[in-house]
Design a protein around this nucleic acid. Structure first.
Lengths: 344, 344
DNA sequence: TTGAAAGCGCTAACAC
DNA sequence: GTGTTAGCGCTTTCAA
């Protein structure tokens, strides 16, 4: 490995001078130093630099699963935004496991300058750990309930509004038997979307009975099982709101397996868009948001803090929008929709 | 920040003893040291450790785009596999830009212990850079043509076989006018899949005319445009093989926009599966491969090298399999399929 | 403007 | 088993 001392020797100056030149200061021997650097193909060791300065030029992104297109886009946005400031992005998947998340945060907190985290639960210990280590933390997509989250910059979306818009759309179409497949309620988007649906339905006097409130886990299989359960009900709903993309995929598979035709027999709205959603038959109506922008914004907030910005934490809420495609229609006239036996 | 010297002072021993204890050696004062560590909430600085040992416990994953579900899965597999050895994964997107890729590799090569790369082109300079720096490199999904790639472990899939299987399937169904939407030919999967299709067709005496060979770029819009071009031909093909998932999405959109019914008027096979592929109507027939396994295998090869394994480079080729769903049928009888005017 | 030298936190000889 | 010490590559006083 070629070190700064090699360059200094070759250029006939001290290491201090080379270091100064590297930091952009004017030095007499700039040319000789440049020549030496080029000949030796020297790159400063960021490790040594970090040891001295404390800056690591690294940020950790901790998300449930990059394989989820939403988080893939978030990561993409954050990574792209990190380049301007020459930061590097460590990626970690928690698989929605709070224990794993804590382990990651603890291990990482001393090795990065900042952390972007989609917390697994709303009673998350990451803020305490990060604060103790003096490492800036930004929440993305989810916050935590307690005031342990005070002082943490946050980028959310208007889950409540998006979910309410989905409910409104269905109510306006004439639906009165509305079901919701909800994500974990100890999670910001899980809770807010659920409450968004419930709130809108309450406001419009279309109560959602207990059996239409299906608690699930943001996973494909959860969506599949809950849709199956809904279809097996004595009086099934005429429409369903699925609260994230993975569960929506599961719900769609259940619908396909049970040969339920959408939207004739059952209407469906998903939260979060999917690449192929417009190509399904019918094209899927969804609540959309700009995931790349969310990631990029989170990174920008973090970089501001790393540049020394102080002041109280900011919480930014991005808009969502209902994209109406073809998966919703008025409820079937006979009032006995969607009940089927399984087929092989 | 609390350093090893603080722990040593508190435990009444030297820093060397604390260091030994940390590395697992038996020391008399283990208990006192543990107590001090706990009270001070001490974590060893990985930066200092790296400076000393040269090991950074970091690996760079350089892929075209995490937003592509294939690469998202590769990254997931690699990240999961990295945990066993306590390595951390830096993520970079090249956006298929060779200049950006080079810049990333150069910047990263001295700050990581190893690199996993899906090279942008087949004449890639990464191996030279990595070799000069003495950093192990693993190619994933793509190799390079020249022997500059000698000494680089590689994890590929049987692109040729997969593409040939797709062609065979179509020929067996009776198709004689087969078109292919190819990826960049200076890319391993681009070239191999293209040649796989061509080779099988040649073997079966079903030549593919020039106008049915559509060169594209692995991007959605490329697939869209090329499908449009095919449909506009005087004599359009009766079936199309699309050589990656993004282009397949574009092709499907073109088909939808032009109201071409699949598979009645045109059959379609995609390379790489998509989450919703089974839910399309018709469900999409694709060539599949295990992306998570690919990523995990690449990381395992890399970790072996980092553990000191020597010996010549290994090149592993994973299987692909044709998943027949519903998007292929015998060609239309009238022999004049798929030609349409655009509709709004 | 420049060089000498100290030191960031940790590890590995080396001597005890 | 343990302490002393040197040094990884770099930055940054402090003098000159």
């Amino acid at each position: 490995m070629v070190a700064i001392s090699d360059v200094a020797a070759r250029a006939g100056v001290s290491t201090a001078t080379v270091s100064r030149h590297l930091r952009g200061q004017l030095v007499r021997s700039a040319e000789a130093i440049e020549a030496a650097i080029a000949e030796l193909d020297y790159t400063p060791s960021s490790v040594a630099r970090s040891l001295k300065s404390g800056v690591k030029y690294a940020v950790a992104m901790v998300v449930p699963d990059v394989t989820n297109p939403f988080f893939a886009s978030v990561v993409k946005g954050a990574e792209t935004a990190s380049r301007r400031a020459q930061y590097n992005v460590f990626l970690y998947n928690t698989d929605e496991d709070p224990a794993r998340e804590q382990k990651i945060i603890r291990a990482v907190v001393h090795n990065v300058d900042g952390i972007i985290l989609a917390p697994t639960t709303e009673h998350d210990e990451a803020p305490a750990i990060a604060r103790k280590a003096g490492v800036p933390l930004v929440f993305i997509d989810r916050t935590i309930a307690t005031d342990a989250g005070d002082g943490v910059d946050t980028v959310l979306v208007d889950n409540t509004g998006g979910a309410a818009a989905a409910a409104r759309h269905l109510i306006d179409l004439g639906h009165r038997r509305i079901a919701v497949i909800a994500g974990p309620l100890d999670t910001t988007p899980g809770r807010e979307r659920y409450e968004g649906v419930l709130g809108e339905c309450r406001r419009r006097r279309v109560p959602i009975p207990e059996q239409y409130r299906r608690m699930s886990d943001f996973r494909e299989d959860g969506g599949y099982q809950q849709m199956l359960a809904l279809l097996a009900l004595e009086t099934p709903p005429t429409c369903v709101i699925s609260c994230n993309n993975s569960m929506t995929v599961g719900a769609l598979k259940a619908l396909a397996d049970m040969r339920v035709s959408v939207p004739e027999e059952l209407s469906l709205v998903g939260f979060d868009d999917l690449d192929l959603a417009p190509l399904l038959s019918p094209p899927l109506t969804v609540v959309r948001r700009d995931a790349v922008a969310q990631g990029s914004l989170a990174m920008r907030l973090l970089l501001k803090r790393l540049e020394g910005e102080t002041g109280k934490a900011r919480s930014i809420t991005l808009d969502t929008s209902l994209t109406v495609r073809g998966s919703c229609a008025p409820p079937p006239a006979d009032g006995r929709p969607a009940r089927r036996k399984a087929q092989r």
